[in-house]
Amino acid sequence: MKKYAAIAAFGAAALTLAGCSSDGGTDGATDGATAAAGETEAAAAGDAGDMVVGFAQVGAESGWRTANTNDIQRAFSDAGIELKFSDAQQKQENQIKAIRSYIQQGVDIISFSPVVETGWDAVLNEAKAAGIPVILTDRSVDSEDDSLYESFLGSDFVLEGNKAGEWVVNEYADADSVKIIQLEGTTGAAPAIDRAEGFIDIIGADPKFEIVASQTGDFTRAGGKEVTEALLKSNPDVDLIYAHNDDMGLGAIEAIEAAGLEPGVDIKIVTVDAVHDGMQALADGKINFIVECSPLLGDQLVEIATAVYNGETVDKRIVTEETTFTQDEAIAALPERAY
């Protein structure tokens, strides 16, 4: 008896799941109603209203990534385009599965942020064979065959490292020796590798710059704090901390203050990202320089997707417009910052 009741209960649950509206699962406005509204606006928005885009996001591993997701979802819902969204929990195999599923579902455009550069040829060839164009965001793939994707929209991490290095060179133009601690991002992650490379490319030429220690803070505040705390004790006369993202820099600030020093004055800090908390610290003078890495790709992505859908050609490589910030620039820009 219990057994049949349990089967019935599960059946009911399954049907409820099948019947319930998609509102229960979303945080953005990407439900069916918007797609319908989009259709009535189809005449005004070109063919965009019927378009279905499949987006395979890396994950939600940081505030930056969530801002990226929110912006993309907002942009597509503003444009009235249906967006199928999946989260890969930072696993490449999950992204491959999602893309294959989108091919199966017959979406019009596939877009994704590759969690790693290598290994996409097989699934991208399947998309090509199915006639579905692919747009890359945030990071690129290293396929030799670049007909596998229409366009790559994203930052250049090496360039970000370069910009950080250039500021350091200018700032310490008159100094004799500069001791630097580098707070690396997650070992093996492309942004970490590239930002380190870009930085070294610029400062490596001059022997007065010495990276006395370089450890990973895993892109988190706690990591940045723990590493800085330990390294400050064994390297008390360090001049500068270069962190691969704002969060690690914020953690470093706490460690510096706990050691009785003044961040931004006794020890200068350079970071990448320009999230709100980082910009605030910059405005307060605790961080000295931030290189922006913008997650707000939504509108540009919608533009490219619509163009591709309508058969227009688009640029292969579109670099996100990013800038850098000093303290005054941060104070001026802070009120407008969206994330």
């Binding site: 591993e61 940081s62 988190t220 505040r221 706690a222 704090k225 969060d247 953690g251 706490e254």
Partner: peptide
Amino acid sequence: IITSDQTAADANNT
């Protein structure tokens, strides 16, 4: 304690 230590709630990494 972790949240207080980093003065932030990071649901991803805590």
